[in-house]
Design a protein around this nucleic acid. Structure first.
Lengths: 236, 236
DNA sequence: AGAGGCTGCTTACGCCATAAACAGGTGGCA
DNA sequence: TGCCACCTGTTTATGGCGTAAGCAGCCTCT
């Protein structure tokens, strides 16, 4: 009746279509704005229709994370590597690529509860964990060495990439209101930036340097240093 | 009339009291459960009363973060240090202490938008950033060296501590339904775990090692390695 | 043709953040 | 003492949210 939409937009729903739309919406408007209702709107469908394919919002976010990591193992295996150093380099770059391609959604990978709660560094995708551990063992690591390496590696990735994507996301959900700020109801520090900055001469002076983005180089040197450290540890 | 509460619980509201209650509630029930309404309930007050002291939920979370970092600079300065290595060690341990004392709230420090958007590694508290930069410069770092060091240091802290607190928080908001599961006879879960695990022999084998918590030692060696790297870089 | 299963829609509930108007008390000042 | 202005917290209302439950149309298979 009221199908004003072209046929292309009225396609059948599917879990993949929903997850894709969710990821798109998250990247465009931020995680908070991605509601079941708005997502339904995006897909030309009522919110409740989505519940046929996802069991709830949590499950959907779970699926978005899984989708991000999809094909990761395949891509890593595609480029066969000779040393474990080269292998870890490849894994790191692969994940960095994912993070940079989805800067808003990437923090979900870290912030959501892990699939296996007992897995201490709780990166979600067990398939990936397995691949890393298996490869390290195949390269002669003992179990202990593999686990320690996995933990240090994970920690490095999370730290570097979270900071890096937070650069790219800064204003994604910033609401700017028209400034009819005649009277501040609350003793406000709206000018907290400037006030603090007046107290922070070094920050002020290095402002340019601080805001320059050298993430790439920093990531590379950090990664190299980490690999060196692991190498040193492994060879006693 | 309906003030059943003892006087002590009916004390005047204040921004500090609200922020403290918020932090407590977050640590106890998770960030999601901390609503204006529940917080009002905790304080024996209607939700709207809070808006006299806090301009909204976002502002409140902002204040919680600020509160976490409160006194940080004072404590760092209290223990006067001689070398920049010792200084950064002290800063790192101070922040780790904060993180471990407030494992559920700590991710807010990283995940909320920074006060100064142009500040690339967006740790929120400008006072702290200033202190680190000033100290490094006072120890002979050039501006470039100070900035690079600050970024690498921040990245390390965020990565290590986020992973560490996520260990301690795993089940904080987990909804446990009363399963009448008396003994461990029944092996099945959501079955997704076991299904994945069946495909992951290495993970399975190292399960014990993976779930052991050696965060402390890992943090120390990682930090030491980072400081060595910085030292090496700084001295050409 | 008829039956049953997909699929998506409608309605409804209880939660949330928050805007706006309001009331009770308390202090200052005559 | 009387009065008024303010500070504090409450009441009421709006619009959004996630999601439980039931319903209606269509597709396919017999």
């Amino acid at each position: 009746m009221s199908t004003d939409e072209p046929r292309s937009a009225r396609r059948r729903l599917s879990r993949d279509r929903i997850v894709d739309a969710a990821l798109t919406s998250i990247e465009e408007h931020g995680v908070d704005q991605m509601s079941m209702r708005s997502l339904g709107r995006d897909l030309g469908v009522e919110a409740m229709a989505l519940y046929r394919y996802v069991s709830g919002r949590e499950d959907l976010l779970e699926a978005v994370v899984a989708n991000l990591l999809n094909g990761f193992v395949e891509r890593v295996e595609a480029a066969e590597t000779t040393s474990w150093q080269e292998y870890l380099q490849h894994v790191a770059h692969e994940i960095r690529h994912i993070a940079l391609a989805n800067p808003t959604a990437f923090p979900l990978v870290v912030s959501r509860h892990p699939a296996a709660p007992w897995l201490r560094p709780p990166l979600r995708d067990i398939e990936m964990v397995e691949h890393v551990l298996a490869t390290l063992c195949a390269r002669g690591f003992t179990d202990d060495q593999a686990v320690d390496t996995y933990k240090a590696f994970t920690s490095f990735l999370v730290g570097s990439l979270l900071l890096e994507v937070s650069i790219k996301t800064e204003n994604i959900a910033a609401v700017e209101e028209p400034m009819n700020e005649g009277s501040a109801d609350i003793p406000e520090q709206d000018s907290s930036d400037d006030a603090d900055l007046a107290q922070a001469p070094h920050v002020l002076r290095m402002r340019d340097r601080l805001s320059q983005d050298h993430s790439e180089a920093e990531f590379e040197t950090g990664l190299e240093s980490l690999l060196n450290r692991i190498e040193h540890t492994v060879s006693h």
